[in-house]
């Protein structure tokens, strides 16, 4: 599996060489596009990160976690996963930190650890994606797509915890 990505690079470089593409110039030009793209993301990133930090410091995230844990347990989601599930739609790096914590505390092969892994791997940073994808476009009505994605992710979380029990 680890071979796959080097193989893709070899194939593309070889094909480009055959087609007489100026590889160095074009590769650098692509990196230039990446730089412009990254810079265009920073305002969004900064605003979202500031919001997340503030949410954390305000202890609202802890209160919400405590409030929702019983509901989650009732639906078969281990209470330890509450924070991970809540943070994931906003922040990939934030939720990755929680995933690390859960694995360190309960072990990668424990039920809780496996649940956390499947939940993390089968969900996305919904709010972050919506901000980045539609940045700079005219106002879109995104409430329905965002709500659908959130509901679907939540149902998937329940399914993931169920699957980890039987698989």
């Amino acid at each position: 599996m680890a071979m796959l990505i080097p193989l893709i690079f070899i194939a593309v470089f070889a094909f480009a060489a055959v087609k007489k593409v100026k590889i160095y110039e074009e590769f650098s030009a692509g990196v230039g596009e990446a730089l412009k793209f990254t810079l265009s993301l920073i305002p969004c990133l900064a605003a979202i990160f500031m919001m997340c930090e503030l949410f954390e410091v305000s202890t609202l995230s802890d209160k919400l976690t405590k409030l929702l844990s019983p509901v989650f347990s009732f639906l078969g989601i281990p209470a330890e996963l509450t924070k991970l599930v809540l943070i994931k739609p906003f922040s990939g790096s934030g939720s990755l930190a929680y995933l690390n914590e859960i694995i360190a505390e309960y072990g990668a092969d424990s039920y809780t650890g496996r649940c956390a892994c499947v939940c993390y791997g089968s969900s996305e940073t919904i709010f972050y994606i919506s901000a980045v994808y539609f940045a700079g476009l005219k106002q879109k009505k995104l409430a329905a797509p965002i709500a659908i994605s959130l509901v679907s992710t939540f149902l998937t979380t329940i399914l993931a915890c169920l699957l980890c029990r039987i698989m």
Binding site: V12, A16, V18, K19, V21, E26, F27, V31
Partner: peptide, 17 residues
Amino acid sequence: IYAVWMGLSRLAEKSGL
């Protein structure tokens, strides 16, 4: 991440791949 993949994808684009 973007530098690596957008560099590569520029090659894929220019070679017609």
